[in-house]
């Protein structure tokens, strides 16, 4: 598979490290997704969606285990992204697998909300 092209994130205290697998992307989130992260996160998830289409991935793993907090505006970026995945024809759709941290309690609630919003796309795993 050709290498993917994802933007670099530069807001303070927030980072995403991406890895490319054979048929998947892994996005490792770290820090705090707050008001300063909204635009970069929105741009990033748009790029992920585009690259997922180009590379024909079957899943994107979103690793939240080191994500301390995410505000509602950043949460909206995920809502938009998952909505776009849902809108794809079935043959092009990919799964979004959230890897969460049981010790960070907001994650269970927020990820359950995303799962109920996009049941056909989202899987949540807790460690």
């Amino acid at each position: 598979m050709a290498p993917f092209k994802l933007p670099l994130l530069s807001p303070p205290g927030f980072a995403i490290v991406a890895e490319q697998g054979e048929h998947s992307f892994v996005l490792r989130f770290r820090g705090n997704a707050d008001m300063s992260s909204i635009e970069p996160l929105d741009d990033y998830l748009r790029a992920v969606h585009e690259e997922a289409g180009i590379h024909g991935v079957t899943s994107v793993v979103v690793d939240f285990r080191a994500l301390e907090f995410m505000n509602s505006s950043c949460f909206k970026c995920f809502v938009e992204w998952l909505g776009k995945v849902q809108d794809l024809p079935a043959s092009k759709r990919y799964r979004v697998i959230f890897d969460s941290n049981r010790e960070i309690h907001w994650q269970r609630r927020s990820l359950n909300a995303l799962r109920s919003f996009a049941m056909d796309v989202v899987t949540v795993e807790a460690r």
């Binding site: 509602s72 505006s73 949460f75 909206k76 809502v79 938009e80 609630r109 909300a113 109920s116 919003f117």
Partner: peptide, 25 residues
């Protein structure tokens, strides 16, 4: 919350999710 998330997909200004999140989550 679910309704607010559906609407947030196309909302251009703000998320409209803050109070809904406080209420639900």
């Amino acid at each position: 919350y679910h309704h607010a998330m559906q609407r947030a997909r196309t909302r251009r200004v703000g998320s409209g999710l803050g109070l809904a999140r406080i209420w639900a989550e």
